[in-house]
Design a protein around this nucleic acid. Structure first.
Length: 221
DNA sequence: TCATTAACACGGG
DNA sequence: CCCGTGTTAATGA
């Protein structure tokens, strides 16, 4: 049976996505005080230094979370998908904290924005919310460790392969609409190096290349 | 040895 | 013509 999600209202959509995660009253409360937004792809939701006022909850689509060095060079940390939230926003309830990461939509996404001052209240009120926040911390910490591991122990070719597979996984398809330059930017590398490794990966049969398109071959969701 | 930067050629839209 | 891609040469870590 197919459900046309775009015709459901906010409460129904929340129940559809989170009924097994949150108590019914919490779902209702989330619905009452938060804002569901449709965001086009490649939109910067948050930049470094921006004050955090809302926490995002991903209903559909995906977001890439990047860090930045002092020269403004970027590095991909991890992706956020359905049901994920950004752990960086979780520790700043009622404080005017500033973001240390940038968040950009990878594809058109629907995101629920929850005011941060609700977080503390719900932490006390709902055990499902506490568990959700704890799980998010855990998941994000593991992903950060994985990102560090990648940087420290793997060369560019391994990083590139992992990057392509991860990205195909997030998009749920093997075709990635991207350019060598964008990949170089995400991996904090140069296009020359990416072009060289991409060529090699193509010869090895890992990927197939077209202009503005990369096919990740041995991809499985 | 491998990454980066700059520079150039080629081809498609 | 502009952009994405392939390649080389020089330099650095």
């Amino acid at each position: 049976m197919k459900t046309n999600l775009s015709e459901l209202n906010c409460l129904e959509r929340l129940q559809d996505r989170f009924q097994y995660l949150f108590e019914a009253e919490l779902v209702k409360e989330i619905c009452d005080c938060s804002d569901l937004k449709h965001i086009p792809e490649d939109t910067e939701l948050m930049h470094i230094g921006q004050t955090i006022t809302h926490m995002p909850l991903i209903i559909s689509g995906s977001i890439k979370v990047m860090t930045e060095d002092d020269k403004g060079e970027e590095l991909l940390l991890y992706y956020l998908e359905l049901g994920d939230t950004c752990a960086m926003t979780l520790n700043c309830c009622s404080k005017a904290a500033k973001s240390i990461i940038a968040a950009i939509t990878e594809e058109p996404s629907e995101i629920l924005f929850i005011p941060v001052d609700k977080m503390e209240e719900w932490m006390i009120k709902y055990s499902s919310w506490r568990n959700f926040v704890m799980d998010s911390y855990n998941t994000r910490l593991n992903e950060m460790l994985e990102a560090i591991d990648n940087l420290a122990f793997h060369n560019m070719e391994e990083r590139l392969t992992k990057y392509l597979r991860d990205r195909a996984m997030v998009m749920h398809k093997g075709e990635l609409k991207t350019t060598h330059y964008q990949i170089a930017n995400d991996l904090h590398s140069s296009r020359v190096v990416i072009s060289r490794h991409m060529k090699k990966l193509e010869q090895e049969g890992v990927i197939k290349q077209h202009r503005n398109l990369v096919e990740v071959l041995e991809f499985q969701s």
